[in-house]
């Protein structure tokens, strides 16, 4: 009841209806869990990128045979791994790499997915039908397997190649969501009006429809960021993500496939596991709050 009252009064305060982005921001601030998550995320990002800027990456990935498997101590805050490398340093760099690849893949797959979805939804009919069958096919394939196979047959394996392969098999969810929204949007008056005025389809799609569904796009990309971070660390865990010289959070976890490490040397893999969980939960909290904001029925304030 109190919620409703607050809702009413806040709506009366703002005479003109608030823009989509403003609603997103307001919902985010109202939801304490999401706000704390967002602050935590920003702190982690600033800390990780800041520290890795100062830290010498070469020094950290250098093998030191005199310091193998050392437990946490004064010198090594989180101990060392089987190559005598500082786990804390690897955790920082790993988090940075995982976050970076998460951002890159989310952005790239977002671009492909949004374009694909907008075109399918906007034109409808046969174009939509053909595009959706292609999408169905991609979506039913076992994602992890194809990425692994492609990663293993690419000759010059780089981070760029990895993100491109990853993107090629992860744009479908976004495309499907955007398409269903675009289908609704194209029936609205402003699109019809624009058409009558002779605006080109390209312009209507990207200058008019896309800004109108921007809040949905932001929400989808945020939720995708969380799952991409998880998938990347999963692939690195299996050994098909980054090469070992560029550690990711998954690389640290993959040391735990050695039973000795899993059982007795928790400092190598537990921090990375906790870090992945914290990142995924925090991004998801923010994403869920944003999602509630886009759906007026679920809005909290």
């Amino acid at each position: 009841m109190e919620m409703n009252n607050m809702n009413m009064s806040s709506q009366q305060d703002s005479a003109k209806s608030p823009s989509g982005l403003k609603i997103l921001w307001r919902e985010l601030v109202r939801d304490k869990l999401a706000l704390v998550s967002l602050i935590l995320l920003i702190l982690i990002i600033v800390f990780v990128y800041g520290v890795s800027f100062i830290m010498d990456e070469k020094e950290i990935v250098k093998v030191d045979l005199f310091a193998i498997h050392e437990p946490p101590s004064e010198e090594f805050i989180l101990g060392t791994d089987y190559g005598g490398r500082d786990v804390f340093g690897q955790l920082i760099i790993g988090t940075r790499n995982s976050l970076s690849i998460g951002f890159i893949v989310t952005l790239l797959s977002g671009m492909i997915g949004i374009t694909f979805g907008l075109i399918a939804g906007f034109f409808g009919g046969h174009i939509d039908n053909v595009l959706m069958r292609i999408l169905d096919f991609f979506q039913v394939l076992p994602f992890i397997m194809l990425v692994i196979v492609f990663v293993s047959i690419v000759p010059n394996y780089t981070i760029l190649a990895f993100s491109l392969i990853f993107t090629a098999f992860s744009w479908m969810g976004i495309a499907r969501l955007i398409r269903s929204k675009a289908l609704q949007e194209k029936e609205l008056d402003y699109v019809q009006a624009s058409r009558t005025l002779g605006t080109s389809n390209f312009k209507i799609i990207f200058r008019e429809v896309m800004p109108n569904i921007s809040s949905l796009i932001i929400v989808t990309l945020t939720l995708n960021l969380a799952s991409n971070i998880g998938l990347e660390s999963g692939l690195s865990f299996l050994g098909f993500g980054f090469p070992e010289s560029t550690p990711s959070l998954g690389t640290l976890l993959s040391y735990a496939t050695n039973p000795q490490t899993l059982e007795h040397r928790w400092w190598i893999w537990v921090p990375a596991a906790v870090m992945i969980l914290v990142l995924m939960l925090a991004v998801r909290n923010v994403g869920e709050a944003l999602r509630r904001a886009t759906d007026a029925r679920q809005r909290r304030g």
Binding site: P259, L277, R284
Partner: peptide, 21 residues
């Protein structure tokens, strides 16, 4: 909610660690 955000491989590792070892 938490299960949705937990990657399977981390969960499996933790299960193995707790119940296996």
């Amino acid at each position: 909610y938490i299960g949705f955000a937990t990657p399977l491989f981390i969960f499996a590792l933790v299960m193995l660690w707790i119940f296996g070892y």
